[in-house]
């Protein structure tokens, strides 16, 4: 039983590591700022979620009781990730950070800049 729990925790840890790595890979590889924005808000958040859940399990296995700190950290990260993504995206738009060529509806960025309803 304990072996399988440990195996599951290891699996979660590895999944988390892979997602964090893929997120970082996306940071380097993706073509423009706005696509890069997707990497940390998703891949990294799930990666860290996996690692924190594994941490909760391992703590319980060691007989140190249910440690709630990890849950507080993951909850905090899940709440703040979209907020910081939103703020950085808004700031980048104000600075006219260029879009990748061939972005669908690129002209819409002008509407967003002055916060008006889209034309047409």
């Amino acid at each position: 039983m304990i072996f399988w729990l440990e195996a599951f925790a290891s699996f979660l840890l590895l999944t988390g590591g892979v997602f964090i790595l893929i997120g970082a890979l996306g940071m380097v590889k993706l073509p423009d700022f706005y696509t890069r924005l997707h990497a940390p808000t998703k891949a990294t958040t799930l990666g860290i979620g996996c690692i924190l859940v594994a941490s909760v399990m391992l703590h319980a296995l060691r007989g140190e009781g249910l440690s709630i700190q990890e849950l507080v950290i993951s909850l905090f990260l899940f709440i703040t990730a979209p907020v910081s993504a939103y703020m950085v995206a808004k700031a980048a738009l104000q600075r006219r950070t260029p879009f990748k060529e061939g972005t669908v509806n690129e002209e819409m960025s002008k509407d967003i800049l002055v916060r008006r309803a889209p034309k047409g």
């Binding site: 700022f33 690692i51 990260l77 950085v88």
Partner: peptide, 26 residues
């Protein structure tokens, strides 16, 4: 190349460092 990219990179860096610290704790 833009400032926004650098802020984003810093943001991801700190989240990843949290993961590393938790791993060290384990």
């Amino acid at each position: 190349p833009s400032t926004a990219d650098r802020i984003l990179a810093l943001d991801t860096l700190y989240i990843n460092s949290i993961a590393l610290i938790v791993l060290l704790g384990l």
